[in-house]
Structure formats: structure tokens, C-alpha cells
Design a protein around this nucleic acid. Structure first.
Lengths: 155, 155
DNA sequence: TTTACGTTTATGCAAACGCATGGACTCTCC
DNA sequence: GGAGAGTCCATGCGTTTGCATAAACGTAAA
């Protein structure tokens, strides 16, 4: 493999390791009430959009299989945190939106989680590093969305 | 929250999004044979050490609960990919090491996965960006471990 | 219209997960 | 040396996940 390829793998392993260590650290904190981090992730994603979201759209932001997401939405709706309405424009689809309770819950947990993230990340990285990390990761994130099909075919 | 805190959260969300998109892309590829990515992760981690690894040590590298990891080790041992031996120096402990089959399997899959990572990541990032990403992520990764012992360095 | 095919979400089922806990062992301090 | 506390791994149990597939709807061509 090329030198550049090795560097890419080193960087990716670093990202994975940072992800794992930070996630564990965040999960250990006592701020999640009766939600799992995955469930919070769903609420957070919904909170970012004013328009109701389709399940498929949600699935592109959350690392979860479609059936698992479907059932998680079930449970969250059961608990009164979000609502599913049939999509008037597409009879197959479902539109998801947070209830007031769901929005409150997301905000309450989100405030503490954001503080937690800020503490953990700013403790280790300078302002320049934060900016570099953000720019690079969002670039990578965009790539994952656009390269989906071109990556599929290959020996 | 401070401007720096907001930047930290933006960077972290970018990292999460990049992680999710890349992971999905990697998982979709048909290179994993009959392993899950989590199982491969265990084999890969073991492959990096010449000495047998304790389960607890393994757990610090893999984002999985201790019982889940214990059972995964069970299954991998059952399938002949790794071996568990009692630790002579600590009666509670177990020492894990890859079998030859396990090592072969890891190498075969690892080659393709590394190529996959190199393709996906180098496609989007310059050499400088790769180096910045690696340096920053490994710094963050180290931060997550700071609370406890300084561990053996990576090969 | 009818047929065939793609898309979006839901369900059956076995496998895997996390939490709580237990048993075996080590360590510390008296 | 022995009691109490801590560490390491395994197991019971209810919940969640992924895979395969079905069901409902949309789209386009015959």
C-alpha cells in the first residue's frame, strides 16, 4: 500500500479510537435519564429540523439498520417523545416530529451533553485544532454521503 | 456556552457524522465474510499485540460492554479464531491470543478493509489533512484514557 | 389498465446486547 | 494469617438488533 494509504489508515484508526474513548466517557456520565445514547441521537436529529422528517432520512443520520430504527421510533412514539403521521404526499411514508415533551427532553439532556462534550474536547485541543478537526471531519462526512454508489462496485 | 465550546461541539458532531457515514459505507462492502465489523475489530486489536491480551485490556479498545465482549470472545474461541488461556500471573484473568486461523482471517479481511479505508479517505483528504486528522484524533484518543494507567504503546 | 419493478416502512425470528449480579481471585491493612 | 474491599470475568434475564421478508404504495412502460 502507498505511503498515503497507510497514513489514511492511521488517521482512520485514530478517529475510531477517539470515537470509542469519547463515547464511553460520555455514556458513563449520569445525564441520560431513561434514554440510551442512540435514542438521544434520534431526538437530537429530529430537533435539528423544523420540518417533519421521513424515517429514511433519519436513517441516513443514525447508524442503525432500518428495522431497528423503525422499532425505536415505535418505542419513542409510545413514550410520547415523538409523533408519526402518514405522509400526505406519499402513502408509503411516515413523517416524524418531536412532541413538546420530546423537545423538552432533548433540550434538557442536550444542554448537559453539550457541556460534557465541550469540557472533554476543549480540554485537549487548541482552537486551531478544533477548527481543523471540524473542517476535516465534515469534509469526510460529506464524502460518505456522495460516494455511496461509486464505492459499491469493486472487486 | 463559550464560542470555543460551540466549536468543540461542532467538531464532535462532524466526527460523529463522518464516523457514521464511513462505517455504513465500509459495512456495505462485501469483504467481511462471516464476521461482523465488531468481531473483526476484536481480531484486529489482538493482531496488533505480540503478547496475549487480557479481556479487560481488549475492552478498552472495543466499544462494547464487558459481558458482551466476554460472550463475543466465547463465540470467536468456539469458531477457532482465538484461544483463551488462564493467566498464570493472575488467577482471575484470561489471556487471549489469535490462533493461526484467526490471524489468517484477520489478515485476509484486513488487507481488503485497509484498501477500502485508503480509497475512501484519501479520495477526500489531502496529505496535510490526513496528517492533521491523525495527530488530532490520536490526541483526543489519548485524552479518553488519561484517567487510568498509561498503557503499552502501539506497534 | 394492467403488469412489472422500485421504494418505503413493518414484522417474524434468531442472535447479540446491556444491566444486574455472582463466583473466583487479589490486595490491603490490621 | 484473616477480614473486608476491590478486580476480573462469567451467567441469568429482559430488551434491542440485524437479516430476511412481507405489505403497501408509487412509477413507468406495455
Amino acid at each position: 500500500m502507498s505511503e498515503r494509504g497507510r497514513l489514511a489508515n492511521h488517521a482512520w484508526e485514530g478517529l475510531l479510537t477517539a470515537h470509542a474513548r469519547m463515547m464511553r466517557q460520555f455514556a458513563d456520565a449520569d445525564i441520560w435519564q431513561d434514554l440510551s445514547m442512540r435514542e438521544y441521537d434520534v431526538l437530537y436529529t429530529l430537533s435539528k429540523y423544523t420540518e417533519p422528517l421521513r424515517i429514511g432520512e433519519l436513517g441516513r443520520h443514525v447508524l442503525l439498520s432500518q428495522p431497528a430504527l423503525s422499532r425505536m421510533v415505535d418505542r419513542l412514539a409510545e413514550r410520547g417523545l415523538l409523533e408519526r403521521c402518514p405522509d400526505p404526499a406519499d402513502g408509503r411514508g411516515v413523517r416524524l416530529s418531536l412532541t413538546d415533551t420530546g423537545r423538552d427532553t432533548q433540550r434538557r439532556i442536550g444542554r448537559r451533553h453539550a457541556a460534557q462534550v465541550a469540557r472533554a474536547v476543549t480540554a485537549e485541543l487548541s482552537r486551531d485544532e478544533l477548527q481543523q478537526l471540524a473542517a476535516i471531519c465534515w469534509k469526510l462526512a460529506g464524502a460518505g454521503a456522495t460516494n455511496e454508489d461509486t464505492e459499491a462496485e469493486r472487486p
